[in-house]
Design a protein around this nucleic acid. Structure first.
Lengths: 150, 150
DNA sequence: TAATATAGTTCAGCCCGCTTAACTAAAAAG
DNA sequence: CTTTTTAGTTAAGCGGGCTGAACTATATTA
């Protein structure tokens, strides 16, 4: 199945190129914003999952609860997070993005996808048509894959 | 130009799906490997651009020359980088990946793109053909974009 | 050749992220 | 009601990343 090998290789290349780019873009954005990668990871997590507790965070970040506590503390200080007591279980905390926190993430998404417009400008109509057919297929396949656990 | 808007939106979606995935995957991979994000950034840079000097690195990482020097020093200690004197200008250094360094990056790519095989299996031959035409176009466009400063 | 500019390195000092260990407080189990 | 478990915090200590400042060595310029 030589075609399958080829397409795998193509996808790998695309991911590689894309990953290198987004890596760099992230690093720069965060640096100017004065946020660390782990801090950003927490904000992203909360942006996607909504409010959660400390243990969720330490689990997700694969870090000790002490580390999570400190990380969250700094984000609370910067008013990007809100940390309140869980009324159901007063040992637990509820962590959530503040308005500032949400705005920060949304800005970062806009920032990182700016180059996409640049990219689109460089394509001929023919090329665009090609990509407009192909990308939805990929997107759907990824979504199906994510749906089925694994 | 409704087509351009649409394709921009498609690319954005792809970024969203992929970015959340890759951020977390990276963090985990680097943690187990004991490498920091900036260190990884340098390796990636060298992987894509080949050998370069200290000032390239401090420029790319947007960091002082002192910081670059220290970062590279650690990577040399870990035998991921090689640092030699430039025979043309003995003030300058030539930095390059060692075999270990190259292998490290390649492993990280393999690791992060393992799900690609999964993805490829879910595509029909027809869909594969579509993607095989479209992806090279995108890849080339990105490379041209990177080439032309901006 | 003397003056200056360039490429990196080293060092002190700061902040951050992380871990382990000791702790507080509340819930669950007995 | 006492014991144990669970959720999180605090503190000490390590190492990394970063900066500015002082320094070395080489190249360039006048």
């Amino acid at each position: 199945m030589p075609e399958s090998i080829q397409i795998t290789e193509l996808l790998r290349q695309w991911i590689d190129v894309f990953a290198a780019r987004s890596f760099h873009d992230w690093a720069r954005y965060l640096r100017t914003a004065g946020l660390s990668m782990p801090q950003f990871g927490i904000l992203m997590h909360l942006y996607h999952r909504g409010q959660c507790g400390m243990s969720d965070i330490s689990g997700r970040m694969e870090v000790s609860s002490a580390a999570a506590s400190q990380l969250v503390e700094r984000l609370v200080q910067s008013s990007l997070l809100e940390r309140t007591e869980d009324p159901q279980d007063r040992r637990a905390r509820q962590i959530a993005l503040t308005e500032d926190g949400r705005k920060f993430i949304e800005d970062s998404i806009a920032e990182r996808s700016r180059w996409v417009e640049n990219l689109a400008e460089r394509l001929t109509d023919e090329e665009k048509a090609l990509i407009q057919k192909a990308l939805p297929v990929l997107l759907e396949a990824v979504q199906k894959m994510d749906g089925k656990a694994k």
